[in-house]
Design a protein around this nucleic acid. Structure first.
Lengths: 196, 196
DNA sequence: TGTTTATCTGAACGTGCGTTCAGATCAAGC
DNA sequence: GCTTGATCTGAACGCACGTTCAGATAAACA
């Protein structure tokens, strides 16, 4: 793993991010040292600073990258039409994203408190945009009479909480496939918003 | 705040736990130093060690205390009879507990990864017992035909995730009262398990 | 082939960490 | 009022932290 001095790397940058993501998810931002990340990459700690200004920027970059990717992926997926179909698309999209990027999802909920204020504000705004997507679907469905939600805002939080919870128990190669999980959650989500 | 040497304290013990709980919830276990906790209590760091063997034991004690209290409180509440009524009781109980002890709930989800293995196993076992309570209710309801849940295990996870998510957005003195929140969540939970 | 330049090493910096402990302090019991 | 013993201070321990930087290295380009 050890890298010789002067050797290059178009890959060191990405590897730093991957190692940091994995370690932050496993042990938490504050519990992971720069030396540990560096050693995972096969490099001395000082070399990290060719790629990032400091540790905080590394965390922020991971969270920002994740939220951007999440919103972008939704924009590509987002169907029009029937609110109920859009809700199903959202549920399946969120489950899939959560199962495929468990570490990103994990740290973007867990490490918010380790962001410095100005960074926190940015990530929080992106999260708000994502939640607003779901809330809009619920409002449209409510207006169209497709579903019955007493409080669309709280319902959006409740659904996202329910869906995201999947990564507290899901393990790859377990008893249920991704599609089965998605089907189960869609079944509950659909009923929960009164689209029985 | 400063305490004079030699002064006593039947209250220092509890105050240490309160300060640690608050600080761990706000900044995370790894990010909070013993000196910080001590200063919050108005004492030097060394004095903490009259009450706890080490930092890890402090975290464990908080989590263990919380889980014991949770299970005990449920045992006192737990109604018999109709599975649907028991489910409602569980939902309302969980919401109330989550709203009243947000910091305990928070750290007992967030700081699991900072527990040493043997401590983790214990807390995880208690959590399992709590989840089993809900799953049993769902199974009974399913058997009695009161509700329709394709997979009781996943449904239990989904419901707990949904309910616990309340403390990501709820703030005291906000737009909704505790009872209103409980009513909204009960409405969604009930429908989600097909007891429309 | 020789030079340049991005990359990395290895050592160092000041700081703060968890924990220990001898000694100071003071409430309580005689 | 004296003694006892629990409680706390304040200094110290070795260690790890994030970050910096001069110098070594080797790939890329002339």
């Amino acid at each position: 793993m050890a890298r010789t001095a002067g050797s290059h790397s178009d890959i060191t940058g990405p590897r730093i991010r991957e190692a940091a993501l994995r370690l932050f998810a496993k042990h938490g931002y504050a519990a992971v040292s720069m030396r540990r990340i560096a050693s995972e990459v096969g490099v001395q700690a000082g070399a990290l600073y060719n790629y990032i200004p400091d540790k905080q920027a590394l965390l922020f970059s991971l969270l920002k990258g994740h939220m951007d990717e999440l919103l972008e992926a939704w924009d590509e997926t987002a169907p029009g039409g029937d609110p109920l179909a859009r809700l199903e698309a959202f549920v399946r999209f969120h489950i899939r994203f959560t199962l495929r990027r468990p570490e990103s999802i994990f740290i973007s909920y867990m490490e918010l408190r380790n962001l410095e204020p100005e960074n926190f504000i940015q990530i929080e705004a992106l999260r708000g945009r994502y939640e607003a997507v779901l809330e809009q679907i619920l409002r449209d469905g409510q207006a169209a009479g497709n579903l019955s939600v007493p409080d669309t805002r709280i319902a959006a939080f409740a659904l996202i909480g329910m869906l995201t919870g999947v990564n507290t128990w899901y393990r790859e190669g377990g008893r249920l496939s991704e599609d089965e999980v998605a089907a189960l959650y869609w079944d509950m989500a659909r009923k929960a918003v009164g689209a029985g």
